[in-house]
Design a binder for these strands. Structure first.
Length: 740
DNA sequence: AGCACGCCGACT
DNA sequence: GTCGGCGTGCTC
C-alpha cells in the first residue's frame, strides 16, 4: 500500500532540460527518476524516438516558457559518471551558436565530438612481442626493426605510442601483428596523461625573448582576460616564448590549450614540447583513433590532461580549469571551419578566453590584418620579437619577370633560365634547393587535343587533376577519383590528352630532365600519407640525402633545413587570381612563409619568385622585406571599402541538387533582403566560388555593414521572411573567408 | 542527425 | 499484384 494508491495523486515529477547533440531548435524535457541526482552540465543518456542518445542537462526544468506536456515526458535512462560539463563550456557553446547562427545542439555536437566519449571506457589494444620467432620471409624494414627493438623489453604499449617512438605509422605495428610477430593484449590500466613539468628544462632565452616571456607569464599568473599578438619572424623563437606562458599556466594550476593548424601539428613540435616539459602534451586532432579520442576527452574533462595541443576542434573540449590559450600561426586559413557549423577557431578562441577570464596569445610571423588592426587600436596588446640573427637571416628576394623574353621558360617548361641556373649553382655548391608550387598533381587541367573536351568533375565545378604518380584523376574538392582514361570520353580519340599548366609532379619531371643526377624529393599531401612519412623526408633532407625538394603548402611549414639556400616559387601569382580583396594578404602570408625556408643560420639564402606581375604590391613587399607598409596599404584599401576588419560581413549560401529551385530560393532571398537600410550593402545572389560542389548547386549572397552593427539579428529577420523548400539548404557564414 | 511514414515505378 | 525509391516530418 503506497500513498499514491491511497490518494490517487501522483507527485509532479522533476524534469530537466536536456540539450542533445542534434540540430534541434531547443533542449528537450525529460523526467528525472527519483533516485537520480542531476545538476546543470550533467551528462545523461536519454531516449529519443527509438534511439538512445547522450545529452547534457542544460538547466533545471522549472524555467519559463511553455512546457511540453507531462505525459509526453520520458525518463532519463542514466547519468554518466563524469564531472558535469563546466558552466563556461556551456556558455561558450551557447555563445558560438548565437554568433554563428547555428542550433545550440549543432555546436554541442562538436563539444562531445565523439558521442562515444560518453560511453564507458573500453580497454585499448596494446601490443607486445609474441613468442613466435621472426619468420625468414618477413622483410625487416628499418621501421619494423625499430619497433621490434622498442618492444624487446618493457610492458605492452599502444600502437600510437610505439609508432611515435619508432617514427613510423601505426600501420607498421599492425602489420607486424598480422605477421604474428606481435600479439595484442587489452590494456587495462589506461595510460595516464603525465603532468608536464614547468621546471623540467627551461631554455635560455635571449633578452627580447625573456622580456616577452615574462610579460606573457605575468599575464597568465595574474589571470583575467587579455589578448596579445606575438609577432615575430620565423626563427625569432616564438615557440619558446609561448612555452613560458604555458609553464606559467601549469605553475598556477591551470590547463593550457595550444591551437595549431592541422598540418603544423608535427612530430617536431611535439618533440620540442617534450624537451621543454619532460613529457608530450595531450593531442587532439581529426585523425586520432576513436578509443584514444575518448580517452583524451575524458582526461580533459577530469582535468588530468593539463596541456592540450590540437586543431580547431580542441577548443570545444570541456576544460574544467582552462587558464591560457595560444593560437599559433594565427593567420592560417585552416582555422576557418567551412562545413557544418561555420566558424573561425581563432575568433572563437578569443571569445572563449573572454568568457573564461584568462589570457590568449595569438602568434604569427605574418599576422592577419584582423589581428594587426586589433593590436593597433589597442584591443590587443602586442609583443614584437626581433629576429635572433638580426637582419642577417633575411634571404635575398629576386623577382623573375616572366613577361620578359629572356626570362621566359622554354615551351612546355615552367622554370625560367635564371632559376635553372640558380638551381645548378646551388647544387654545385653542395647546397639544397626547394621549388614551391601550390598545386598538387601533374597538371591542373587536362583536355582532349582532337575535340577540346576538358576533364571535369561530375559533382563539382572543377577540373579533374591528373595525378601521374597514382595514374588517377582526382577532384580536389569532393574526393572524386577515377582511373586516368586511355581515350577521350567525348570523342573516343586515343592518346589525345594534353596537360595544361604545371602541377608539382610536372615540375618534378622537368627538373629530373634538367638535372638527371640530382636526388629529388617530393613533398605534397599526396606523397606524405601521415606524419611519419613527413618525418622521413625531413630526416632525408637534413641528412643531405636530397638535393632538391619540390612541393606544395605542406612544405612551407616551419621545418628547419640548414643546407637549404635557394627557394624558387614556380608561380608566385597563383593565389592572386580572382580579385578577392583578401587574396593579396593570403598570398603574401604564404610566400613569406615559403621564403622563410631559405638560408637559416650562417648560410645566406636567396628566394626567386617567378611572376607575371612584378609591380604588384605583394611582390614588391616580398622583394623589399617591407611587410608593414604593404599591410598598411592593404588596411587603407579595406577601410575605404568598409571591408573586414573595418566592417562586418556575412554570407548566405543557398544550395541544393535542383538548380532551378536553388536559383528560385536565392532570388527570393535577394528580394527579401533588407534594402531599406542605408548602412547595409547586399550583394548577389551570385554563383558561389564553387558553383557546383559535391553535386549541389550553390548561390551566394553577401551582406556588408558597419562595424557598429550586429548582423545576426538582421540576418535572423531576413531569413524569417523567406520560405525555402526543405530540399534547399541556407547556410550562414559569419565573417566569410572570401569576400567575393 | 536518424528513422518512420507515405505516395509513385520495375520486378518475383 | 508487391518491393522500394527518397521527400517530409517528428523526436521531450
Amino acid at each position: 500500500m503506497t500513498g499514491d494508491l491511497l490518494s490517487g495523486v501522483t507527485a509532479p515529477s522533476a524534469r530537466v532540460r536536456v540539450q542533445l547533440p542534434l540540430p534541434l531548435p531547443e533542449p528537450y524535457d525529460y523526467r528525472v527518476p527519483g533516485d537520480m541526482a542531476l545538476v546543470p552540465g550533467s551528462y545523461v543518456e536519454v531516449p529519443l524516438g527509438p534511439r538512445r542518445l547522450f545529452g547534457v542537462v542544460w538547466a533545471d526544468g522549472d524555467g519559463q516558457g511553455e512546457r511540453v506536456e507531462e505525459r509526453k515526458l520520458r525518463p532519463v535512462i542514466r547519468a554518466i559518471d563524469l564531472p558535469p560539463m563546466p558552466d563556461i563550456t556551456r556558455r561558450f557553446v551557447e555563445w558560438v551558436a548565437a554568433y554563428t547562427m547555428s542550433p545550440v545542439g549543432a555546436v554541442l555536437r562538436m563539444a562531445v565530438s565523439v558521442s562515444a566519449a560518453l560511453e564507458d571506457p573500453r580497454a585499448l589494444t596494446a601490443y607486445m612481442r609474441s613468442d613466435a620467432a621472426v619468420p625468414d620471409d618477413l622483410r625487416l624494414t628499418p621501421a619494423r626493426k625499430r619497433i621490434l627493438e622498442i618492444l624487446s623489453d618493457g610492458p605492452p604499449r599502444l600502437a600510437a605510442d610505439i609508432a611515435a617512438e619508432a617514427g613510423c605509422g601505426t600501420g607498421v605495428v599492425r602489420g607486424l601483428a598480422d605477421a604474428g610477430v606481435l600479439t595484442t593484449v587489452p590494456m587495462l590500466a589506461l595510460p595516464r596523461f603525465p603532468q608536464p613539468d614547468p621546471e623540467a628544462n627551461p631554455k635560455t632565452l635571449s633578452g627580447a625573448q625573456r622580456l616577452a616571456a615574462d610579460d606573457l607569464a605575468a599575464k597568465v599568473s595574474a589571470g583575467g582576460y587579455s589578448a596579445t599578438l606575438l609577432d615575430g619572424v620565423t626563427g625569432s623563437g616564438k615557440t619558446e616564448v609561448y612555452f613560458e606562458a604555458v609553464a606559467a599556466a601549469l605553475r598556477a594550476g591551470k590547463q593550457a590549450l595550444v591551437l595549431l593548424p592541422e598540418i603544423a601539428l608535427s612530430a617536431q613540435w611535439l618533440d620540442r614540447f617534450a624537451q621543454r616539459f619532460g613529457v608530450r602534451p595531450a593531442e587532439w586532432h581529426s585523425e586520432m583513433a576513436p578509443p584514444l579520442r575518448r580517452h583524451t576527452w575524458r582526461a580533459v574533462a577530469k582535468g588530468e590532461a593539463r596541456v592540450v595541443v590540437g586543431a580547431r576542434s580542441a577548443l570545444f573540449l570541456p576544460y574544467p580549469d582552462l587558464g591560457l590559450i595560444v593560437v599559433d600561426e594565427e593567420h592560417e586559413a585552416a582555422f576557418k571551419q567551412e562545413d557544418g557549423v561555420i566558424y573561425h577557431a581563432r575568433d572563437m578562441a578569443v571569445a572563449r578566453a573572454h568568457l573564461g577570464r584568462f589570457p590568449i596569445v595569438l602568434a604569427s610571423a605574418t599576422p592577419s590584418l584582423e589581428t594587426l588592426v586589433n593590436a593597433e587600436n589597442g584591443r590587443y596588446s602586442r609583443i614584437d620579437l626581433p629576429s635572433r640573427h638580426g637582419g642577417a637571416s633575411m634571404p635575398d628576394v629576386t623577382l623573375i619577370d616572366m613577361r620578359r623574353k629572356e626570362q621566359a621558360p622554354p615551351a612546355r617548361a615552367w622554370l625560367s633560365p635564371v632559376l635553372r641556373e640558380a638551381l645548378a649553382q646551388t647544387m654545385l655548391a653542395g647546397e639544397q634547393g626547394m621549388l614551391f608550387l601550390n598545386r598538387r598533381g601533374y597538371a591542373p587541367l587536362t583536355l582532349c587535343r582532337s575535340c577540346g573536351h576538358r576533364l571535369q568533375c561530375p559533382n563539382c565545378t572543377a577540373w579533374l587533376v591528373e595525378h601521374r604518380l597514382t595514374k588517377r584523376l582526382q577532384c580536389h574538392h569532393c574526393g572524386y577519383q577515377a582511373k586516368s582514361p586511355d581515350a577521350c570520353p567525348e570523342c573516343e580519340a586515343e592518346g589525345s590528352f594534353v596537360a595544361c599548366g604545371p602541377g608539382v609532379e610536372r615540375v618534378a619531371e622537368e627538373v629530373a630532365t634538367l638535372f638527371p643526377d640530382a636526388r629529388i624529393a617530393m613533398m605534397t599531401s599526396d606523397t606524405l600519407s601521415g606524419p611519419q612519412a613527413l618525418r622521413t623526408v625531413i630526416e632525408q633532407v637534413k641528412d643531405g640525402a636530397v638535393d632538391l625538394l619540390i612541393g606544395t603548402q605542406v612544405m612551407a611549414k616551419g621545418h628547419h633545413f640548414p643546407m637549404l639556400t635557394l627557394v624558387g616559387v614556380v608561380d608566385a601569382d597563383l593565389g592572386l587570381a580572382g580579385g578577392d580583396p583578401r587574396a593579396s594578404e593570403r598570398t603574401f602570408q604564404l610566400l613569406h612563409q615559403v621564403a622563410g625556408r631559405a638560408g637559416r643560420e650562417e648560410r645566406p639564402g636567396r628566394v626567386m619568385l617567378q611572376t607575371y606581375m612584378p609591380e604588384n604590391p605583394v611582390m614588391q613587399a616580398l622583394a623589399s622585406h617591407d611587410r608593414d607598409s604593404f599591410l598598411a596599404v592593404e588596411a587603407d584599401q579595406r577601410r575605404q571599402l568598409e571591408m573586414p576588419p573595418f566592417g562586418r560581413m556575412a554570407a548566405l549560401i543557398v544550395s541544393g541538387e535542383d538548380e532551378g529551385l536553388v536559383d528560385a530560393a536565392a532570388a527570393a532571398l535577394g528580394r527579401a533582403a533588407p534594402r531599406d537600410r542605408e548602412d547595409l550593402t547586399i550583394l548577389g545572389p551570385a554563383p558561389a566560388p564553387l558553383a557546383v560542389l559535391r553535386g549541389r548547386y550553390r548561390r551566394r549572397l553577401l551582406i556588408k555593414g558597419p562595424k557598429s552593427v550586429s548582423l545576426q539579428p538582421i540576418l535572423y529577420d531576413w531569413l524569417a521572411r523567406v520560405e525555402v523548400p526543405a530540399s534547399i539548404r541556407v547556410q550562414v557564414d559569419i565573417d566569410p573567408y572570401s569576400f567575393l
